[in-house]
């Protein structure tokens, strides 16, 4: 649908299917189309950055891939290791090796971090994996400079912004995904937390995992060097290239790229121009306990 000169899935040199393959993806959120046809191919061992201004559809892409209710794929296809991702339930996607590092992780009071991690690892790798669970956990906690006491805390409940992001990275490290999507993981982090998170991701980099790093801020990419950069504007991939593209955006902003799109005769829908906001693009952070809709949060 958007077969322009600069977009299109990158084929592997060996001709094999990429680990994650997105073709012609359209996504609707509350009866409004946010993603207007995206092609993207990610192989294990690669780091892809998706850059774009606020409201360009970056988080919508992440949610659609992770099967969030309300994010409806209306056209296109997505495959993970050759399997039809869109046919899978959310938990099946996770067990197949897809991971989403949430921008706003949900707080779940009453569920201990430790038990939850154990159950997740068991779901993904089976009962055998529990044997090495403790040793691995200790190692990952050390890497992320997290105290073991996190395991006795309720999942994300009362965590600071930095703690939540570290907890996401910890889950990612324990679940060893083959494709990891990081949705604005840099947002709301102070310099120290940011560094710990970036170190955690870099430690995971390797031939077994492909990353999709979503950000609207180049700082992230200074620490996590991408192999490929995709610029997402108005729900379309506007430009693709290597790491130099991120620098270009950093220096000149998105203006020149939008101008190029328009010169190609493409319709570019920008939130500022349309006056519309992209519904649910950036959900409000939930501080409340889902079971304690009112009143106190602790006794």
């Amino acid at each position: 649908m958007t077969a322009t000169a600069t977009t299109g899935a990158m084929a592997r040199a060996d001709g094999q299917e990429p680990t994650l393959k997105i073709e012609g993806l359209h996504v609707m959120v509350t009866s409004r189309e946010i993603i207007h046809g995206i092609d993207l191919a990610v192989n294990k061992g690669e780091v892809h950055a998706i850059l774009g201004p606020n409201g360009s559809g970056k988080s919508t892409l992440a949610y659609a891939l992770m099967g969030r209710p309300g994010y409806d794929v209306t056209a296109g296809s997505v495959s993970l290791k050759g399997q039809d991702l869109l046919e899978m339930e959310v938990d099946e996607r996770a067990r197949a090796g897809l991971f989403l590092c949430f921008q706003y992780p949900t707080s779940i009071p009453g569920v201990h971090m430790g038990n939850f991690l154990r159950l997740s690892v068991k779901s993904r790798f089976g009962d055998e994996a529990i044997k090495t669970f403790r040793t691995e956990l200790t190692e990952k906690l050390r890497l992320l400079k997290m105290d073991r006491s996190y395991m006795n805390r309720y999942l994300n409940e009362g965590f600071s912004g930095g703690e939540k992001k570290k907890a996401e990275i910890l889950q990612m490290a324990m679940l060893k995904p083959e494709i990891a999507i990081m949705d604005e993981t840099d947002s709301g982090l102070d310099v120290d937390a940011f560094k710990v998170v970036a170190d955690g991701v870099n430690a995971m980099r390797g031939p077994d995992v492909g990353f999709v790093v979503i950000t609207h801020y180049n700082r992230m990419l200074e620490y996590i060097k991408p192999d490929f950069v995709h610029i997402l504007i108005g729900g379309k991939i506007a430009k693709e290239g290597g790491p130099e593209l991120a620098l270009e955006v950093d220096q000149h902003g998105y203006g020149p790229i939008i101008a190029e799109m328009r010169a190609r005769g493409e319709q570019v829908e920008l939130p500022e121009e349309g006056g519309a906001t992209y519904a649910r693009e950036e959900p409000v952070e939930r501080h409340d306990d889902p079971f304690r809709a009112h009143g106190r949060t602790s006794l």
Binding site: V90, D91, A94, T106, Q171, L175
Partner: peptide, 16 residues
């Protein structure tokens, strides 16, 4: 049960 929480847990591989 809070669907937001169900989704988060399922996204880590736990069946509904």
């Amino acid at each position: 049960v809070d669907e937001e929480s169900v989704y988060y847990l399922m996204s880590r591989g736990l069946p509904r």
